[in-house]
């Protein structure tokens, strides 16, 4: 089982859009679970899934065994989702209350080992206890990064945090998101950041097809497989998988 988390302290950088499409792409080959940890439940929305009434953060933490009750099949065979719920806002509090609070999420995920080959987590923006749980639980943190000066700062902050907490930096896999090629600043920043950090080579351009996903409530990869947007997600996902394979060998 490989666990990927779409993560960035910054909001609105394309985490959910990437999570939804990567999950769809992954499910074409492997049984995949998308976990929506964001209280805004944007990924659940994209898959037209509503959380079960009784689902709340207390359940996620305490009743890990019966968690599968809350998992929903999506429109796509091989792709299931654990929907979010507004009560995830309290997830932080709940995690603090439980023992071994940092590795809690990892242990919850281990229950799914038999069932799923790939788990993708769509994260909420901010660095709190939930984030630390994610750092422990994920094998890879995929970081959508808009090529701006501010993004670099958040990336540095994250790397620092990893160093402090003694977590392997190899987990951090940043990629460029919402890239506008006609903006000179974007191009400059890409060159600059690529030299300093191990960015994935493929990037996600700024494309209106991706914005439209909100209306269509379908991953662009399934809806318009031939579009440049779908191609961009596909290429990036393939590159990520290749990197993992190289590392495993």
């Amino acid at each position: 089982m490989s666990v990927f988390a779409l993560y960035n302290i910054k909001g609105g950088v394309g985490k959910t859009s990437a999570a939804v499409n990567f999950a769809w792409l992954s499910a074409q080959q492997d049984k995949t679970l998308l976990i929506d940890l964001d209280p805004q439940s944007a990924s659940s929305f994209y898959f037209r899934v509503r959380a079960a009434k009784k689902h709340s953060s207390k359940k996620l933490i305490k009743k890990t065994k019966s968690l599968d009750k809350f998992i929903r099949g999506t429109d796509f065979p091989g792709l299931d989702i654990l929907p979010a719920d507004l009560s995830y806002r309290n997830l932080d509090l709940e995690l603090k209350k439980s023992k071994n609070s940092r590795s809690r999420l990892r242990r919850i995920l281990n229950n799914f080992k038999e069932e799923y080959t790939v788990i993708i987590i769509d994260c909420p923006p901010n660095i709190t206890l939930v984030s630390e749980n994610i750092f422990q639980a994920a094998d890879y943190l995929l970081i959508p990064t808009i090529p701006t000066y501010l993004s670099e700062l958040t990336l540095i902050k994250l790397i620092d945090f990893f160093t402090e907490e003694n977590i392997s930096q190899k987990k951090i896999q940043p990629f460029f998101s919402m890239v506008e090629k006609r903006k000179k600043l974007h191009l400059q920043k890409i060159d600059e950041l690529s030299e300093k950090y191990h960015f994935l080579i493929n990037h996600i351009p700024y494309l209106s097809d991706i914005e439209k996903m909100g209306e269509e409530r379908m991953p662009v990869c399934s809806q318009r497989p031939a579009s440049p947007a779908a191609q961009a997600y596909k290429n990036l996902w393939e590159e990520i998988n290749k990197r993992i394979k190289n590392k495993d060998n």
Binding site: F70, R72, G73, T74
Partner: peptide
């Protein structure tokens, strides 16, 4: 000569 497979979707 006609077979149907009804498949449950998790959670429904």
């Amino acid at each position: 000569d006609n077979i149907f497979l009804l498949e449950e979707v998790r959670g429904y």
